[in-house]
């Protein structure tokens, strides 16, 4: 058994965006991304809206059919299609129990006509995890208690709950099948600041109690740093940097990561007054028509001709610190 629970190699997810034959257009939502997640660890994924975080999470769960690449879960290949090679795809049913997802929007992701008990009970029914009605009920109550709710909540409907409570229900539902791995897609972004800390602590407690492994997606780097062991940074479908959380926030190597970090307003007036911000020019280009070479080059202060022609290689620049940039010497 290796330490790696999830391995993603050269993953590509292209969505068709109209056009026919040769003029067929694609959104390269995820384009040649490689990383792994260790057992029991939290890998954070950050980047700006539309950069491919959600798509990466959903593709590795095979909620989308990957365009290309290899996905290995617990040493088993669950998908493989490399250029020139043949396609291998495992039956996902047994994996659906091990791999779960929690969504961003606690309002939209719960069926308003079902009681909270039935929402949490649904996966128990689908996977036939309870032998009797009593067993099913006990399991539901246990799950609700795990996420800080109680038996009285089981007969109520989602609209009777606050945002933070609904997010707890979504997590209880994900936990119903005893998963090992959970993709958490912006699970706290819709919550009030005073509630976010409660939910973050709950994620940490559950991980400790149940030995869970997380892919934690969020655009708030402060939150991601707090909860993650390692962090990957995406830009326009590419992973640009990946390292230990402290390493990444204190010694980032990639110019995009640096500007992202400096753009985050720190909640401390003195630090704010002292900060010299790197303000990036321009907007994120369209993923339908990404820049050639390095995708960050249209906003990068160090870009040159090489950046326009060649895609920078994804490499381990320092031990366990991966980055894709031609000119690390110039930017650091």
């Amino acid at each position: 058994m290796s330490d790696k629970l999830v391995q993603v190699e050269h993953l590509k997810q292209y969505f068709s965006a109209g056009g026919l034959g040769k003029s067929k257009k694609y959104v390269k939502a995820v384009d040649d991304v490689s990383f792994h997640i260790d057992r029991g660890e939290t890998l954070g994924l950050v980047g700006e809206s539309g950069c491919g975080k959600t798509t990466t999470g959903r593709t590795l769960l095979r909620l989308y059919e990957p365009t290309e690449g290899r996905i290995i879960y617990d040493d088993q290949v669950i998908f493989e299609k490399m250029p020139g090679g043949k396609r291998t795809a495992a039956d996902m049913l047994p994996y659906r129990k091990k791999m779960q997802i929690v969504f961003q929007d606690p309002y939209a992701s719960l069926d308003p006509r079902m009681t909270v008990g039935d929402i949490v009970g649904e996966p128990i029914d689908i996977h036939k995890l309870a032998g009797s009605k009593q067993e099913r009920y006990d399991r539901i109550i246990e799950l609700l208690q795990r996420v800080g709710l109680n038996s009285e909540h089981a007969n109520r409907y989602p609209h009777e709950f606050s945002g933070g409570q609904r997010q707890r229900v979504g997590i209880a539902r994900a936990l119903a099948v005893n998963p090992e791995f959970i993709v958490c897609d912006e699970p706290i972004s819709a919550l009030d600041v005073s509630i976010q800390a409660q939910v973050i602590n709950m994620f940490e407690d559950l991980q400790e109690q149940l030995g869970l492994t997380y892919l934690f997606i969020a655009h708030d780097l402060s939150v991601v740093k707090h909860i993650s062991n390692r962090i990957g940074v995406m830009y326009l479908g590419k992973m640009v940097e990946l390292a230990d959380s402290y390493e990444l926030t204190e010694h980032s190597l990639h110019p995009y990561t640096k500007s992202l970090i400096s753009a985050i307003p720190i909640a401390d007036p003195e630090v704010a007054r002292a900060n010299k911000r790197i303000v990036l020019e321009g907007d994120v280009p369209s993923p339908l028509n990404p820049p050639s070479g390095c995708r960050f080059r249209t906003r990068c202060p160090y870009a040159d001709e090489k950046c326009a022609c060649e895609v920078p290689e994804w490499r381990e620049a320092e031990k366990n610190h991966y980055v894709a940039c031609h000119h690390l010497d110039k930017c650091n």
Binding site: V193, Q198, K225
Partner: peptide
């Protein structure tokens, strides 16, 4: 209750309880 980007070690957040 808010995590800080310039934190140098992991400290458990202290949430405001209740709703």
């Amino acid at each position: 209750s808010i995590p800080r980007l310039d934190a140098t070690k992991h400290e458990r957040l202290i949430p405001i309880e209740g709703t």
